[in-house]
């Protein structure tokens, strides 16, 4: 199985502090708006519905099937959630899914959770909403609009989220831009097809069984236009930025270096503190040895202590 590039949940350590912090801030703001909207506009029925749908998306992600190249297609679910619940509730639902995956299953890190929610929950939802609503309007709510819109929304939500991951890795200086974007983008154009097909399959099932759930004629929720514009902007921005970044990796390197520069600038503040704070340990090799001894002592001490108390208990 080729996991790495297909992976969408970034683990901790793969984004710089600055990128993590910025994306946390953006996520917090958007999520705050979404929670407020959900609280205001939607009925009280919505709370159990969102919770159970989040669980359904998680369960639905198990329904995978083989795609070319040893990867398997499965559901991310942002597009389906958006189509079924509207953008605001979908953001809350996807946040819940991504959050539980990180907290409970270590699928994605905690410090980078903001970024993961941003990629899968916010970008995925905004782009899906933009594509699906556009098709629905173009087709006048007809069958082909629902299915074509659903497919493209799902496909694009995956590709755009993957490109966002690649860009974030590159800006963090963890992966060269041209490689990351080509790899993530390339593989996810394929994986996105899987997402698209499953989404259409699910929509076809629901269209036949409970057409009312697809809310074809329902009025767009408040703030919908804003979301639509947001989706358009993000899709356009990434479509424009990605080829640019991969053909000018130097540009991104520069950003990465600025980023690294901030990290060092911050720490060089501390180097102003004179060396004799730790007299004698200014030597790196010595420090390494001391740290090694201290670390080993700590681990062995704890292990001995635990073993001792256990023996006492069983005795």
């Amino acid at each position: 199985m080729i996991y790495a590039p297909a992976q969408m949940h970034i683990p901790d350590g793969f984004l710089s502090i600055l990128v993590s912090a910025i994306l946390w801030a953006v996520t917090a703001v958007v999520l705050g708006i979404a929670l407020k909207r959900v609280g205001q506009d939607l009925g009280e029925r919505q709370v159990p519905l969102m919770g159970v749908l989040a669980a359904a998306i998680f369960a639905g992600q198990m329904l995978n099937f083989p795609v070319a190249g040893g990867t398997s297609g499965h559901l991310m679910g942002a597009a389906l959630a958006t189509i079924l619940l509207g953008p605001w509730a979908a953001i809350v639902v996807m946040t819940t899914v991504v959050g539980v995956q990180a907290l409970v299953f270590q699928d994605g890190g905690l410090l980078v959770l903001g970024a993961n929610i941003f990629n899968m929950g916010i970008i995925g939802v905004l782009v899906s909403h933009f594509v699906y609503r556009s098709f629905l309007r173009l087709s006048g709510g007809k069958r082909w609009g629902i299915f074509a819109g659903g497919f493209l929304a799902a496909w694009l939500s995956i590709v755009v989220a993957a490109l966002a991951v690649a860009l974030q890795l590159a800006v963090s200086g963890r992966s060269p831009a041209n490689l990351a974007i080509a790899a993530m983008g390339g593989i996810h154009t394929l994986i996105g097809i899987g997402e698209g097909l499953i989404t259409v399959g699910a929509l076809a099932f629901l269209y036949a069984a409970r057409r009312d759930l697809l809310q074809i004629d329902a009025p767009a929720p408040k703030g919908s236009r804003m979301v639509w514009v947001g989706g358009l902007t993000i899709a356009a921005l990434l479509a424009f930025l990605s080829p640019l970044a991969s053909s000018h990796p130097d540009g991104l390197e520069w950003v990465a270096e600025q980023n690294g520069f901030i990290d060092t600038a911050q720490s060089s503040l501390y180097t102003l503190i004179p060396d004799y704070v730790f007299p004698g340990i200014s030597n790196e090799a010595l420090a390494t040895i001391v740290a090694g001894i201290v670390g080993l002592l700590l681990v062995f001490g704890v292990a001995l202590g635990v073993a001792h108390t256990r023996r006492k208990k069983t005795a």
Partner: peptide, 20 residues
């Protein structure tokens, strides 16, 4: 693959309907 995806999609739809 398309057929498999359709089956998986049908199951996902089924799952979502039950969730509703």
């Amino acid at each position: 693959m398309a057929w498999q995806a359709r089956v998986a999609g049908g199951m996902a739809g089924n799952l979502f309907l039950r969730a509703f």
